[in-house]
Design a protein around this nucleic acid. Structure first.
Length: 472
DNA sequence: TTTTGAGTTGTTCGA
DNA sequence: GTCGAACAACTCAAA
């Protein structure tokens, strides 16, 4: 009897899982394993919201595996030690896994692969997380792309879709009972702050599949018009599912393509293209991080190394974090984040612009906060997004692009429904004033909502001046 | 090698 | 209210 370990990481699913399928084809029995080793991802060990999600996702995967005659063996790192121990204990001769692309992880994995191979084990890795891997999309000069549009043109033109691998019906397995109980990983918060997360999210593969069906069936045809509207359910809500690999992007692209072909509907097809483009951004960011591993820490555009940020302002930072800046749409977003572990994409840009440009606090501060509070926290997306907003990315927002949260609010949340939902103090404020309640002093006093932490006009001017200095 | 066209998401001002 | 221009200059990527 030949046995292989299948090492689950951020591919917490049974469908379209290349490592799992390959191991089942090549071996008589498999042992599904998860190894908890946050230290190995330092300094970007998963944040609190991300750990919360991981707990639910692992629970769900364990259940799905058990229903197929197997189970998930949970262990603690170091990863190599745990793998070697399990190989020995179960007389296994191989480890199969799906690749990740963050610098700390690729470094660990290649070392680990080398060691396993030297010791006579078979070590094989697969692509399960991306439509195309970071080295597969190159300029004609063989360089990585730094600008999204040409990247996407190239990626789109050479993209090969394939049908998703089916979920294995039965998984012939080694006994897995000796593993740790999931609770031993202590992924859940000590203080129960996670009620809002439970309300908003269902975790695990079948929840991901439900969310995807819902998107394809009812959201995709209006995606182009609605995805920018925080007051509507116009986005897919799939980012945390994608981050943890509860559903594969290849399967999504394949099924979307099938639906578009059968539909022959322009709105549907536009929505599909728009959504694929967002998947493209995800891959673009992964690719940037792979080729520029300093991206979470260092300005991609080194000229920004000389930029003068405002002095650190902990009270202002705190008010930003807790949604007490006095700018309604910024506070709505920050409270949505705190309570539900997510924030609408457009509002992410607004709060980031506000922190880095109006408050001129370093983008690292926002990056860290998002890292700890987002259930979809993803090293590549997060770093890329913050650098883009701050203007220090290579393909970045021009310095003079400073979002005005009032006009953005009126444009994308015209009735103020989004603000009212997350900032109950403003529930009774009529639409014309809801994005600038400070312009009516009596109303502001009655509402017990704070006055703005900065003047939007003058802070904008100051930011423009600071960026102009950098240029000169 | 040189040239050329283009670059996620905006705001303000003045006609 | 609507529209175009200015806000800058630079770098990327392909021809």
């Amino acid at each position: 009897m030949k046995t292989a370990l299948v090492w689950f990481r951020r591919d917490l699913r049974l469908a379209d899982n290349p490592a799992l399928t390959a191991a089942l084809e090549a071996y008589d029995r498999v042992l599904p394993v998860f190894i908890h080793a946050p230290d190995e991802e330092a300094p970007w060990a998963p944040g609190a919201a991300s750990r919360w999600w991981l707990h639910g996702s692992l629970e769900s995967l364990g259940k799905d595996l058990r229903s197929r005659g197997s189970g998930l063996h949970i262990a603690r790192g170091p990863s190599l030690d745990a793998l070697l121990r399990l190989l020995g204990e179960h007389g296994a001769t191989a480890v199969y896994w799906n690749r990740l692309y963050e610098p700390a992880i690729t470094q660990r994995d290649s070392l680990l692969k080398q060691t396993l191979t030297e010791q006579g084990f078979e070590a094989r890795s697969f692509n399960a997380a991306l439509l195309q891997e970071p080295w597969e999309v190159q300029t004609n000069q063989g360089q990585p792309y730094r600008v999204f549009t040409p990247y996407w043109r190239k990626a789109r033109s050479q993209m090969q879709l394939r049908p998703p691998l089916p979920k294995p019906a039965r998984i012939a397995s080694r006994d897995h009972a000796a593993g740790l109980p999931l609770d031993a990983l202590e992924l859940l918060p000590a203080r129960p702050w996670d009620q809002g997360l439970h309300t908003r999210w269902a975790r695990g593969e079948s929840a991901a599949e439900d969310a995807f069906s819902e998107f394809i069936d009812s959201t995709m045809s209006t995606y182009i018009d609605e995805r920018d509207r925080p007051d509507r359910d116009g986005t897919s809500g799939l980012s945390p599912h994608l981050h943890f690999g509860e559903i594969s992007p290849m399967r999504m692209a394949w099924e979307i393509d099938e639906r578009v072909r059968s539909g022959r509907d322009a709105a549907l097809s536009n929505g599909a293209e728009g959504f694929l483009r967002q998947l493209g951004w995800r891959e673009f960011s992964q690719q940037l991080l792979f080729h520029f591993p300093d991206m979470p820490e260092k300005n991609l555009n080194s000229r920004f190394d000389g930029f003068i940020w405002a002095d650190a302002d902990p009270p202002a930072l705190k008010r930003w974090q807790r949604g007490r800046t006095g700018i309604p749409i910024v506070d709505a977003g920050m409270r949505e984040l705190w309570e539900s572990g997510t924030m609408h994409n457009r509002v992410r840009m607004l709060v980031a612009s506000f922190l880095t440009k109006n408050l001129r606090q370093h983008w690292h501060l926002g990056e860290r906060w998002f890292w700890d509070t987002l259930v979809d926290a993803d090293l590549a997306n997060n770093a890329q997004g913050w650098q883009w907003t701050a203007g220090c990315g290579v393909d970045a927002s021009p310095y003079f692009r400073i979002f005005n949260p009032v006009s953005q609010g009126m444009k994308f949340d015209p009735r103020g429904d989004y603000v009212r939902r997350w900032v109950p103090e403003l529930a009774d404020v009529p639409a014309p004033l809801i994005h600038r309640p400070w312009t009516d002093g009596d109303l502001l006093a009655r509402s017990h909502y704070p006055a703005p932490i900065v003047d939007l006009d003058s802070s904008r001017q100051a930011a423009l001046a600071a960026y102009k200095d950098l240029r000169d």
